[in-house]
């Protein structure tokens, strides 16, 4: 086993709002090795983006506070770095594709200027080679007529094109760790497949560690090595992809897998997980999933389950896995 590129231990991020404190990230731990891809999945609002943003110390100020834990990048603690040091790490050692492409794009600058910037900054390119590399990069993410498109402004591109431009910027200089937060939501399947292949290629060549946040379980199955399932700010199940898909331990994971509509199925109604997602400002005592869990027992409503071993390298926070 090589040392992990990124190791997150017991990360605690709170969001302070006028209506109370939200436990957005509540004791999250994981690590990702060189050349490995960790898929981060889970319900909308479960804290996936906050986990990623906390790693880069980009969680929204002033609401967000990182209260504890540790984030080690190649053994170096990031949580105690100064903002100046973090700026150097972002983009160079850790790159992130943000969920909202428009927050990484400046509406008043052309796409060309924005793609050239990381190339100039981290690759030291200028002049003609810089423009050529920018065109190449845009073409590699499937932007047609890339040379003509350099002059386009973000609003003149389609949703999926904007998403790919942001992806191109993130891989302009291959980082040690690439965090991709929902990078393919606006892409059709053929372009998505091409884009995923590009990321995989890049990963193989540079041995990058990758954290891939997605709602698309098909993508997880295709490109991830391990997967962590989040619910209400916690990782409720984690393990190798084959184990999670083949033998999900946590009831939430199981229901998540059952909710996927499949092509060719003609059911009238899709399977949904009953009930409301939890309010993170007022979590129930016990297991956060208990109010919606079809298998909940008395114990679940009283005590929060710790992490249990559910299989080789598989863990689950569910009382069903408690050793007898």
């Amino acid at each position: 086993m090589t040392a992990p590129v990124i190791e997150v231990r017991d990360l605690q991020t709170r969001l302070v709002t006028r209506w109370g404190t939200i436990r957005a990230v509540d004791g999250v731990s994981f690590s990702v090795a060189e050349g490995e891809t960790l898929g981060l999945v889970g319900e909308s609002g479960s804290g996936k983006s906050m986990t990623c943003l906390s790693i880069l110390r980009l969680a929204p100020r002033p609401a967000a506070r990182i209260l504890g834990g540790s984030v080690l990048l190649d053994g170096e603690e990031l949580l105690t770095k100064s903002e100046r040091e973090m700026q150097r790490i972002r983009g160079k050692k850790v790159a992130m594709i943000l969920q909202d492409p428009m927050s990484s794009l400046n509406p008043v600058f052309s796409v060309g200027m924005q793609v050239r910037e990381p190339l100039a900054l981290h690759r030291g390119l200028s002049g003609r080679p810089l423009t050529e590399r920018a065109i190449e990069l845009l073409a590699s993410v499937g932007i047609a007529s890339a040379a003509t498109r350099l002059g386009a402004f973000p609003h003149q591109l389609s949703g999926g094109m904007r998403q790919r431009v942001v992806g191109a910027m993130a891989i302009a200089a291959p980082p040690r760790l690439l965090i991709a937060d929902e990078p393919t939501t606006s892409l059709d399947l053929t372009i998505q497949a091409q884009y995923l292949r590009l990321l995989k290629d890049l990963q193989m060549r540079h041995r990058l560690a990758m954290i891939f946040v997605t709602h698309n379980l098909g993508i997880v199955a295709k490109i991830c090595d391990r997967v962590a399932v989040m619910y209400a700010g916690r990782i409720v199940e984690a393990g190798p992809v084959a184990a999670i898909f083949g033998a999900p331990a946590h009831p939430y994971t199981r229901l998540l897998l059952e909710s996927v509509p499949r092509l060719g199925e003609t059911t009238e109604w899709l399977t949904a997980i009953e009930g409301q997602p939890p309010d993170l400002a007022a979590l129930p005592p016990g297991c956060a999933f208990a109010p919606r869990c079809p298998q909940a027992m008395d114990r679940c409503r009283a005590d929060a389950p710790p992490e249990f071993v559910a299989g080789p390298a598989q863990t689950s926070r569910c009382w069903l896995q408690a050793p007898p």
């Binding site: 047609a144 399947l189 098909g218 199955a221 084959a242």
Partner: peptide
């Protein structure tokens, strides 16, 4: 091609993905 590219849900599940060759065309 579009519908064949639908990803299988399970890891290792085969897909008869028709890979579209060639450049992405330009509306320009």
């Amino acid at each position: 091609a579009l519908f064949s590219a639908a990803l299988p849900l399970r890891p290792g599940g085969g897909s008869d993905e028709i890979i579209l060759a060639g450049e992405v065309p330009s509306p320009l």
